[in-house]
Write a protein that binds this DNA or RNA. Structure first.
Lengths: 107, 107
DNA sequence: TGATTTTATGTCATATTCGACATTTCATCA
DNA sequence: TGATGAAATGTCGAATATGACATAAAATCA
Protein backbone atom coordinates (compact mmCIF):
# COMPACT_ATOMS: atom_id res chain seq x y z
CA UNK A 1 0.00 0.00 0.00
CA UNK A 2 1.51 3.27 -1.07
CA UNK A 3 1.55 6.30 1.17
CA UNK A 4 -1.00 8.29 -0.79
CA UNK A 5 -3.52 5.51 -0.59
CA UNK A 6 -2.88 5.10 3.11
CA UNK A 7 -3.60 8.76 3.67
CA UNK A 8 -6.76 8.58 1.67
CA UNK A 9 -7.95 5.64 3.67
CA UNK A 10 -7.16 7.29 6.94
CA UNK A 11 -8.97 10.42 5.95
CA UNK A 12 -12.02 8.42 5.08
CA UNK A 13 -11.75 6.79 8.46
CA UNK A 14 -12.99 9.85 10.30
CA UNK A 15 -16.39 9.41 8.80
CA UNK A 16 -16.85 6.28 10.83
CA UNK A 17 -14.71 6.70 13.88
CA UNK A 18 -11.89 8.96 14.97
CA UNK A 19 -8.84 9.98 13.02
CA UNK A 20 -6.23 7.65 14.40
CA UNK A 21 -2.66 7.08 13.50
CA UNK A 22 -2.38 4.43 10.88
CA UNK A 23 0.04 2.25 9.00
CA UNK A 24 3.22 4.02 8.07
CA UNK A 25 2.23 7.53 8.97
CA UNK A 26 4.85 9.48 10.84
CA UNK A 27 3.88 11.75 13.68
CA UNK A 28 3.96 14.85 11.48
CA UNK A 29 2.00 13.20 8.73
CA UNK A 30 -0.63 12.16 11.22
CA UNK A 31 -0.96 15.65 12.70
CA UNK A 32 -1.00 17.16 9.23
CA UNK A 33 -3.90 14.91 8.29
CA UNK A 34 -5.71 15.81 11.48
CA UNK A 35 -5.38 19.49 10.68
CA UNK A 36 -6.81 18.92 7.24
CA UNK A 37 -9.69 16.94 8.68
CA UNK A 38 -10.48 19.73 11.11
CA UNK A 39 -10.66 22.24 8.24
CA UNK A 40 -12.66 19.83 6.11
CA UNK A 41 -15.25 19.36 8.83
CA UNK A 42 -15.43 23.09 9.36
CA UNK A 43 -15.97 23.67 5.67
CA UNK A 44 -18.88 21.28 5.54
CA UNK A 45 -20.31 22.74 8.71
CA UNK A 46 -20.13 26.29 7.40
CA UNK A 47 -21.52 25.39 4.00
CA UNK A 48 -24.50 23.63 5.54
CA UNK A 49 -25.02 26.44 8.00
CA UNK A 50 -25.36 28.77 5.03
CA UNK A 51 -27.60 26.28 3.25
CA UNK A 52 -25.39 26.13 0.20
CA UNK A 53 -25.04 23.17 -2.11
CA UNK A 54 -21.56 22.09 -3.11
CA UNK A 55 -22.32 23.49 -6.55
CA UNK A 56 -23.29 26.88 -5.13
CA UNK A 57 -20.18 27.05 -2.98
CA UNK A 58 -18.08 26.01 -5.93
CA UNK A 59 -19.36 29.01 -7.87
CA UNK A 60 -18.68 31.32 -4.95
CA UNK A 61 -15.04 30.31 -4.73
CA UNK A 62 -14.48 29.78 -8.45
CA UNK A 63 -14.05 26.05 -8.22
CA UNK A 64 -16.07 22.97 -9.10
CA UNK A 65 -18.52 20.76 -7.27
CA UNK A 66 -16.20 17.79 -7.41
CA UNK A 67 -13.43 19.73 -5.79
CA UNK A 68 -15.68 20.82 -2.95
CA UNK A 69 -16.65 17.19 -2.41
CA UNK A 70 -13.00 16.22 -2.34
CA UNK A 71 -12.21 18.99 0.11
CA UNK A 72 -14.90 17.87 2.46
CA UNK A 73 -13.79 14.26 2.11
CA UNK A 74 -10.21 15.19 2.97
CA UNK A 75 -8.92 13.91 -0.33
CA UNK A 76 -5.11 13.90 -0.33
CA UNK A 77 -5.00 15.92 -3.52
CA UNK A 78 -6.50 18.98 -1.87
CA UNK A 79 -4.18 21.51 -0.33
CA UNK A 80 -4.44 23.42 2.90
CA UNK A 81 -4.33 26.53 0.74
CA UNK A 82 -7.58 25.67 -0.98
CA UNK A 83 -9.28 24.74 2.27
CA UNK A 84 -8.19 27.94 3.96
CA UNK A 85 -9.11 30.12 0.99
CA UNK A 86 -12.51 28.47 0.86
CA UNK A 87 -13.15 29.08 4.53
CA UNK A 88 -12.09 32.69 4.14
CA UNK A 89 -14.52 33.08 1.25
CA UNK A 90 -17.22 31.69 3.51
CA UNK A 91 -16.48 34.57 5.82
CA UNK A 92 -14.34 33.02 8.52
CA UNK A 93 -11.65 35.14 10.12
CA UNK A 94 -8.04 34.14 10.57
CA UNK A 95 -8.77 33.78 14.26
CA UNK A 96 -11.58 31.35 13.62
CA UNK A 97 -9.38 29.28 11.34
CA UNK A 98 -6.73 29.11 14.04
CA UNK A 99 -9.35 28.04 16.54
CA UNK A 100 -10.54 25.37 14.15
CA UNK A 101 -7.06 23.91 14.07
CA UNK A 102 -6.81 23.99 17.84
CA UNK A 103 -10.21 22.40 18.18
CA UNK A 104 -9.35 19.40 16.04
CA UNK A 105 -7.80 16.25 17.47
CA UNK A 106 -4.14 17.04 17.00
CA UNK A 107 -1.14 16.50 19.23
CA UNK B 1 1.19 45.20 -11.82
CA UNK B 2 -0.09 41.68 -11.78
CA UNK B 3 -1.59 40.11 -8.68
CA UNK B 4 1.29 37.77 -8.01
CA UNK B 5 3.75 40.59 -8.00
CA UNK B 6 1.52 42.62 -5.74
CA UNK B 7 1.38 39.79 -3.22
CA UNK B 8 5.11 39.40 -3.32
CA UNK B 9 5.59 43.07 -2.67
CA UNK B 10 3.13 43.06 0.17
CA UNK B 11 4.75 40.09 1.77
CA UNK B 12 8.10 41.77 1.64
CA UNK B 13 6.52 44.80 3.19
CA UNK B 14 6.29 43.20 6.60
CA UNK B 15 10.03 43.32 6.90
CA UNK B 16 9.89 47.08 7.08
CA UNK B 17 6.53 47.91 8.53
CA UNK B 18 3.29 46.07 9.15
CA UNK B 19 1.39 43.83 6.79
CA UNK B 20 -1.22 46.16 5.43
CA UNK B 21 -3.85 45.76 2.80
CA UNK B 22 -2.55 46.81 -0.54
CA UNK B 23 -3.51 47.52 -4.10
CA UNK B 24 -6.07 45.15 -5.50
CA UNK B 25 -6.10 42.61 -2.72
CA UNK B 26 -9.50 41.44 -1.65
CA UNK B 27 -10.30 40.93 2.00
CA UNK B 28 -9.73 37.17 1.78
CA UNK B 29 -6.50 37.57 -0.09
CA UNK B 30 -5.27 39.98 2.52
CA UNK B 31 -6.11 37.66 5.40
CA UNK B 32 -4.64 34.71 3.53
CA UNK B 33 -1.38 36.62 3.16
CA UNK B 34 -1.43 37.56 6.82
CA UNK B 35 -1.80 33.91 7.80
CA UNK B 36 1.13 33.00 5.64
CA UNK B 37 3.21 35.76 7.14
CA UNK B 38 2.40 34.55 10.64
CA UNK B 39 3.60 31.05 9.77
CA UNK B 40 6.65 32.44 7.99
CA UNK B 41 7.68 34.44 11.04
CA UNK B 42 7.11 31.44 13.26
CA UNK B 43 9.26 29.29 11.03
CA UNK B 44 12.16 31.72 11.19
CA UNK B 45 11.71 32.08 14.92
CA UNK B 46 11.76 28.34 15.51
CA UNK B 47 14.70 27.77 13.20
CA UNK B 48 16.77 30.39 14.95
CA UNK B 49 15.69 29.13 18.34
CA UNK B 50 17.16 25.78 17.36
CA UNK B 51 20.26 27.47 15.92
CA UNK B 52 19.81 25.90 12.53
CA UNK B 53 20.96 27.40 9.26
CA UNK B 54 18.54 27.41 6.37
CA UNK B 55 20.68 24.70 4.80
CA UNK B 56 20.47 22.53 7.90
CA UNK B 57 16.71 22.94 8.16
CA UNK B 58 16.40 22.18 4.47
CA UNK B 59 18.09 18.84 5.02
CA UNK B 60 15.86 18.08 7.98
CA UNK B 61 12.70 18.55 5.98
CA UNK B 62 14.04 17.24 2.68
CA UNK B 63 14.00 20.54 0.90
CA UNK B 64 16.53 23.11 -0.24
CA UNK B 65 18.02 26.27 1.22
CA UNK B 66 16.40 28.44 -1.38
CA UNK B 67 12.97 27.08 -0.56
CA UNK B 68 13.47 27.76 3.14
CA UNK B 69 14.47 31.32 2.30
CA UNK B 70 11.37 31.70 0.18
CA UNK B 71 9.20 30.30 2.93
CA UNK B 72 10.57 32.75 5.44
CA UNK B 73 10.18 35.58 2.96
CA UNK B 74 6.56 34.67 2.34
CA UNK B 75 7.18 34.12 -1.34
CA UNK B 76 3.88 33.60 -3.18
CA UNK B 77 5.12 30.34 -4.65
CA UNK B 78 5.22 28.62 -1.27
CA UNK B 79 2.16 26.84 -0.06
CA UNK B 80 0.58 26.72 3.37
CA UNK B 81 1.13 22.99 3.18
CA UNK B 82 4.88 23.35 3.02
CA UNK B 83 4.92 25.91 5.82
CA UNK B 84 2.77 23.75 8.07
CA UNK B 85 4.70 20.57 7.31
CA UNK B 86 7.94 22.39 8.05
CA UNK B 87 6.68 23.65 11.38
CA UNK B 88 5.50 20.16 12.28
CA UNK B 89 8.93 18.79 11.45
CA UNK B 90 10.40 21.40 13.75
CA UNK B 91 8.28 19.87 16.48
CA UNK B 92 5.33 22.23 16.72
CA UNK B 93 1.97 20.76 17.66
CA UNK B 94 -1.25 21.38 15.81
CA UNK B 95 -2.34 23.49 18.75
CA UNK B 96 0.72 25.68 18.46
CA UNK B 97 0.13 26.15 14.76
CA UNK B 98 -3.43 27.22 15.45
CA UNK B 99 -2.20 29.64 18.05
CA UNK B 100 0.29 31.03 15.58
CA UNK B 101 -2.51 31.83 13.20
CA UNK B 102 -4.52 33.47 15.95
CA UNK B 103 -1.52 35.46 17.07
CA UNK B 104 -0.88 36.99 13.66
CA UNK B 105 -2.48 40.20 12.51
CA UNK B 106 -5.57 38.86 10.82
CA UNK B 107 -9.18 39.94 10.85
C1' DT C 1 -42.37 3.91 -5.98
C1' DG C 2 -39.95 7.11 -9.53
C1' DA C 3 -38.28 11.83 -10.52
C1' DT C 4 -35.10 15.25 -9.18
C1' DT C 5 -31.47 17.21 -6.65
C1' DT C 6 -27.29 16.67 -4.28
C1' DT C 7 -23.00 14.48 -3.35
C1' DA C 8 -19.15 11.12 -4.44
C1' DT C 9 -15.64 9.33 -7.43
C1' DG C 10 -12.54 8.91 -11.37
C1' DT C 11 -9.93 11.01 -15.10
C1' DC C 12 -7.56 14.51 -17.75
C1' DA C 13 -5.08 18.75 -19.54
C1' DT C 14 -3.45 22.78 -17.48
C1' DA C 15 -1.56 25.51 -13.80
C1' DT C 16 0.97 25.82 -9.73
C1' DT C 17 4.43 24.31 -6.48
C1' DC C 18 8.34 21.61 -5.79
C1' DG C 19 13.58 20.63 -5.03
C1' DA C 20 17.68 21.70 -7.17
C1' DC C 21 21.09 24.61 -8.83
C1' DA C 22 23.60 29.00 -9.94
C1' DT C 23 24.47 33.34 -8.58
C1' DT C 24 24.21 37.44 -5.85
C1' DT C 25 23.82 39.95 -1.55
C1' DC C 26 24.67 40.28 3.20
C1' DA C 27 26.84 39.46 7.70
C1' DT C 28 30.69 38.19 10.55
C1' DC C 29 35.33 38.21 11.74
C1' DA C 30 40.38 37.93 11.33
C1' DT D 1 40.47 45.10 4.10
C1' DG D 2 39.36 40.40 2.18
C1' DA D 3 37.75 35.76 3.21
C1' DT D 4 34.03 32.83 4.58
C1' DG D 5 29.56 31.23 5.79
C1' DA D 6 24.59 32.42 5.59
C1' DA D 7 20.70 34.21 3.31
C1' DA D 8 18.29 36.03 -0.85
C1' DT D 9 16.86 35.72 -5.60
C1' DG D 10 16.05 33.81 -10.22
C1' DT D 11 15.33 29.92 -13.20
C1' DC D 12 14.65 25.23 -14.53
C1' DG D 13 12.34 20.42 -15.36
C1' DA D 14 9.68 17.36 -12.44
C1' DA D 15 6.00 16.60 -9.31
C1' DT D 16 1.60 17.81 -7.54
C1' DA D 17 -2.89 20.38 -7.24
C1' DT D 18 -6.30 22.49 -10.01
C1' DG D 19 -10.99 23.13 -12.45
C1' DA D 20 -13.67 20.80 -15.60
C1' DC D 21 -16.19 17.08 -17.05
C1' DA D 22 -18.60 12.51 -16.98
C1' DT D 23 -20.97 9.47 -14.34
C1' DA D 24 -22.32 6.79 -10.28
C1' DA D 25 -24.30 6.75 -5.85
C1' DA D 26 -27.31 8.86 -2.26
C1' DA D 27 -30.56 11.63 -0.56
C1' DT D 28 -34.95 14.14 -0.84
C1' DC D 29 -39.60 14.39 -1.94
C1' DA D 30 -44.01 13.98 -4.58
Amino acid sequence: MDKKKAKKLEMRGWKIGDASDFLGLTQEESVYVDLKVALALKLRDQRKRKRLTQTALAQAIGSSQSRIAKMEAGDPTVSLDLLVKSLLTLGLTGKEIGETLIGGKNG
